[in-house]
Computed example of a mutant assay.
Amino acid sequence: MSYQGSGKTPYQGDGRVFGEFRCTKCSRKWMSGNSWANMGQECQSCKVNVYPYKQTPLEKKTSDQDKCDLQKAHLSSLCEKCKILGYNCRSDYH
């Protein structure tokens, strides 16, 4: 995994990672287990593309207290990677 920060996102590898997002327009925050290098997600409130400010390796959910639930539905209509692929980006990476 490469975390050099030489692109639009901190992570510059090929795989899917966990991302933390903050909309610069409305300050809404969210987390996603479907974050990619140089790809953003659309803010549900403002409809602007937001790049993650922090990205870390994916970890499987081990308790109800964990922040990331990989079984939660992915809103592909808000995901830049899904829009480019033309299908849900999680399809190849379960």
Rank of each mutant, 00 (worst) to 15 (best):
Y3W: 14
C89G: 01
L58G: 08
G19Y: 02
D14R: 15
F21N: 02
R90I: 05
W30L: 04
E59A: 13
S27D: 08
G7H: 11
S2Q: 12
C79Y: 02
S32Q: 08
G13C: 10
S35T: 09
D69V: 09
K67M: 02
D14G: 15
K60T: 09
G15Q: 11
R28W: 03
K25C: 01
V48E: 09
W30A: 04
G33C: 03
T24S: 13
L70V: 13
C68M: 13
V48L: 12
T9E: 02
D92P: 03
C68E: 04
C82F: 04
A73G: 03
T24E: 12
G40N: 05
K8I: 00
D66R: 08
G15W: 06
K81Q: 14
K29A: 06
K72H: 08
A37V: 02
G33V: 01
T56V: 15
H94Y: 07
G19H: 05
E42G: 05
S6P: 06
M39I: 03
H94K: 14
K29P: 03
I84V: 15
L78Y: 02
S63T: 13
R90W: 03
W30R: 10
G33S: 08
L70K: 07
R22F: 00
Q12L: 06
T24A: 13
A73E: 15
K29E: 09
M39V: 05
Q44M: 04
Q44W: 05
D66C: 15
C89P: 06
G19P: 02
S2W: 03
N34R: 05
S6D: 15
R22V: 10
N49G: 02
W36Q: 02
K67L: 07
Y87F: 14
S35Y: 03
S91N: 12
W36S: 02
G86M: 09
S2I: 14
K54S: 11
C68H: 12
H74K: 07
S45F: 09
E42C: 07
V48S: 12
Y51I: 03
K60S: 15
R16H: 01
W30N: 05
S77V: 00
S76L: 07
G86A: 08
G5P: 10
F18L: 09
C68N: 00
Q12K: 11
E80R: 10
F21I: 05
D64N: 15
L58V: 10
L70E: 11
C82A: 13
C46T: 06
L78P: 01
R16M: 10
R22Y: 02
Q41V: 01
E42V: 08
G19S: 07
N34E: 14
S6Q: 14
N38Q: 10
K61N: 12
W36A: 04
K60F: 07
T56Y: 09
Q4P: 12
V50C: 09
R16N: 04
L70T: 14
C46I: 06
S77P: 00
S63I: 07
N38F: 11
S63Y: 11
Y53D: 06
R16A: 08
Q65E: 12
L78D: 02
D66K: 10
C79N: 09
L85W: 11
D92Y: 03
Q4Y: 10
L75P: 01
S63Q: 07
W36M: 01
S77W: 10
Y3V: 06
E80S: 13
F18H: 11
E59R: 15
K81F: 08
Y87P: 03
N38T: 02
L70C: 07
Y53C: 05
E80I: 03
T62S: 12
Q65T: 13
N88D: 12
R22C: 12
Y11F: 15
C43A: 10
